[in-house]
Design a binder for these strands. Structure first.
Length: 501
RNA sequence: GGCCGCAUCGUCUAAUGGUUAGGACAUCAGGUUUUCAUCCUGGCAAUCGGGGUUCGAUUCCCCGUGCGGCUACCA
């Protein structure tokens, strides 16, 4: 088996909550690189911090990855020959390797209490010194260590970091980066509860799982020297490293919960399609060197190159996502649309009632009506949520913006007259004629005789009936609402516009 | 504070030691359309600052500034 030639990447999230959109992109890039090279993509759960664990942590991650279509070849739920893929189930492995390091003097027991460490850190900061472990226990004699162990004193295991010298790490997109060992702390590798820290578990697992390319966030760059050191101490070949940029929010700073909901599934619930999210996320920090904008997961897999990754941190804004999403939405058939929104009505948490209402209403319509409404809706909506919100047309628009009742090229006075004329005209139209097509014919004949332009009449009508900027045509709205409701809304609009005394 | 990284239109980005610094989104204007939208055309808009190196720098080097990350028995 020439495992050495097979590219293997992994996504290694910690199950501390919802999968973040930035994490999703990290997973995407790792997936793309593996697939581009006909290699394997693994999922590994790094649950080594019991205090931060969250209920359904693993499910929150797998649900998001599955939604995007990023299937893993090995990992939770699918298994594989290098398992288990959940770190809390590998504790004995880490213990064993920690002991090996201690035996080699590459790591040591530390019995310092957290009180002592806190006090030390405060003192160092007060003196404007960088906070660092003072290596007190590193100087303990073997006898003293054995004695403490025998007494059952709580301990952690720390990495023996070189006291001086430099280390150069290589990053595929950033090149060589030099660190001074003097600036690096004796990292804790095993915590007092018997769990490993990220640094230890990550290195051991990446080696055991034969990971060839570590693709992770830039926040890991400063600890990479410690990871390289561990590989050296174990006598293992280190994988290649690629550190990805971090998504910034519009307000500046790392994108986080503080700046609204940034979880991947939030985007699903807001009505974005996975194809759009994949497409958009891929273009944030990576560029195919062409002017093309649309890529499926398969196309991305073909084109992806680690060397084309952009170094700077991008600001995450949704305008372009909306545009891309509309592009993919337009390809949806009525059936697919309904299927998508039906799924959302079951999963989208607090928004699901809206989706439910839409499904209920939409599926009650005849197929031709569905086709017609979707045909006109898809041109003016960017998300499935906006599609579902078109239901307000049926529910009744409660809030009008008085300014919007008037067409941009018209005036309040003229518009008032239009509303009056509209009501008179509609009052004389029979119920049998109250369908989109006949209404269309009637109005298109009538408007030229009034002296107004199409916009003078149709915009106020459409806005009065829908209450929103973008909606189906006024005639479709009128048909859906029926004559009585149509007249009611027109009159209401007129009342708002007429100055009260 | 220390260490590390990064720096092109508002945003995502392309390009080169010599270009009118290109594209997309957004925005603005005009046109098509039965209003909005869609679609088409056009406009506005960027190389952070200062030094070098060079015939020439946005590109290479240094300094500064700004932004970001790390600085835990969190990942």
């Amino acid at each position: 088996m020439n495992t050495r030639n097979v590219v293997r990447t992994r996504f290694a999230p910690s199950p501390t909550g919802k999968l973040h959109i930035g994490g999703a992109r990290t997973a995407l890039f790792a997936y793309l690189w593996a697939k581009k090279n006909n290699g394997q993509f693994l999922l590994r759960i790094e649950d080594t911090d019991k205090t931060r664990e969250v209920e359904n942590g693993v499910a929150q991650i797998t649900e998001g990855l599955r939604w995007l279509g990023l299937t893993w070849d090995e990992g939770p739920e699918v298994g594989g020959e290098h398992g288990p893929y959940i770190q809390s189930q590998r504790l004995d492995i880490y213990q064993r390797y920690a002991k090996e390091l201690i035996a080699k003097k590459a790591a040591y027991y530390c019995f310092c209490t957290s009180e002592r460490l806190d006090a030390m850190r405060k003192e160092q900061q007060a003196q404007k010194q960088p906070p660092r472990y003072d290596r007190y226990c590193r100087r303990m004699t073997d006898e003293a260590v054995q004695a403490a162990l025998a007494k059952g004193v709580n301990f952690v295991v720390r990495l023996t970091v070189p006291e001086s010298g430099k280390i150069t790490i290589h990053d595929i997109v950033r090149g060589d980066i030099v660190f001074d060992w003097h600036d690096i702390d004796d990292q804790v590798l095993m915590k007092s509860d018997g769990y490993p820290t990220y640094h230890l578990a990550n290195v051991i697992d990446d080696h055991l799982m034969q990971i060839t390319h570590v693709i992770r966030g830039e926040e890991w760059l400063p600890s990479t020297p410690k990871h390289i050191l561990l590989y050296q101490l174990f006598g293992w070949a280190a994988p290649e490293f690629t550190h990805l940029s971090i998504f910034l929010s519009k307000q500046g700073g790392k994108m986080s919960k503080r700046h609204g909901d940034t979880s991947l599934l939030h985007f699903r619930d807001q009505g974005y399609l996975p194809e759009a999210v994949v497409n958009f996320a891929a273009l944030l920090g990576w560029n195919p060197k062409t002017t093309e904008e649309f890529f499926t997961l398969e196309e991305l897999t073909e084109r992806f190159e680690l060397t084309q990754i952009h170094k700077a941190n991008p600001v995450f804004e949704t305008e372009k996502l909306d545009w891309i999403n509309q592009h993919y939405m337009k390809k949806l058939s009525v059936l697919q649309l309904l299927e998508n929104i039906r799924n959302l009505s079951e999963n989208a948490e607090e928004i699901s009632p809206l989706y439910k209402k839409f499904v209920q209403w939409f599926s009650s319509l005849s197929t031709p009506r569905q086709e017609s409404i979707w045909g006109s809706l898809k041109e003016r909506t960017h998300t499935l949520r906006e599609v579902a919100e078109s239901i307000v047309v049926v529910e009744g628009a409660q809030e009008y913006d008085p300014k919007k009742l008037v067409w941009k090229k018209s005036t309040v006075e003229e518009t008032c007259k239009v509303y009056i004329a509209l009501q008179e005209k509609i009052a004389h139209i029979s119920e049998e004629q109250f369908l989109a097509k006949p209404l269309n014919d009637i109005f298109m004949q009538w408007i030229p005789t009034t002296g107004w332009g199409n916009g003078d009449v149709l915009w106020p009508m459409r806005y009065a009936l829908s209450g929103v900027d973008k909606s189906p045509s006024p005639f479709e709205l009128a048909e859906i609402l029926g004559k009585e409701e149509t007249l009611k809304r027109l009159q209401y609009a007129q009342t708002i516009l007429t100055p009260h005394q």
